[in-house]
């Protein structure tokens, strides 16, 4: 029977391998025929959503891998907006509101509140964080 998972990503895009583990876990969930209800990026996890990450060409590009996961399997990627703002991770709207000239978060990553995590936990069959 299909189960719904919510995945929380707390580790940075670069600096630990926990975000890569989270991505592999998501891929395995989907391969097993289950559903990722959403991936919620919290704490340092929000740096996964920065389009300005420039890893060397022969290294894992987590940003691209998240993008592919979202596009191929319709997985919502939600940033905690307050965790993101504190770490210089901004959408165009955030940049406008904070009077900044630049931003680094675009679709399919979206900004959301912690409430998204709470409602996600409420609706999911399994919650797994990395």
């Amino acid at each position: 029977m299909m189960k719904k998972f919510i995945i929380q990503v707390n580790g940075p895009a670069y600096g630990s391998t926990s975000s890569y583990k989270a991505l592999q876990y998501c891929q395995a969930v989907i391969a097993a025929g289950h559903q990722i209800e959403k991936v919620f990026f919290y704490q340092d996890g929000v740096t996964n959503s920065s389009s300005l990450n420039c890893p060397a060409s022969d290294e894992v590009n987590l940003y691209q891998l998240w993008l592919r996961l979202a596009n191929e399997h319709n997985v919502p990627l939600i940033n905690c907006v307050s965790a993101a703002l504190r770490r210089g991770v901004l959408s165009q709207q955030d940049a406008y509101e904070s009077n900044k000239a630049h931003w680094n978060v675009d679709a399919p990553f979206v900004m959301g509140g912690l409430g998204e995590l709470v409602t996600g936990i409420e609706q999911a069959d399994r919650f797994v964080s990395f």
Partner: peptide, 13 residues
């Protein structure tokens, strides 16, 4: 601190 934020928000939900 981020855990407390989560806890308070969960309680308010």
């Amino acid at each position: 601190r981020e855990g407390i934020d989560f806890a308070l928000l969960s309680a308010s939900f």
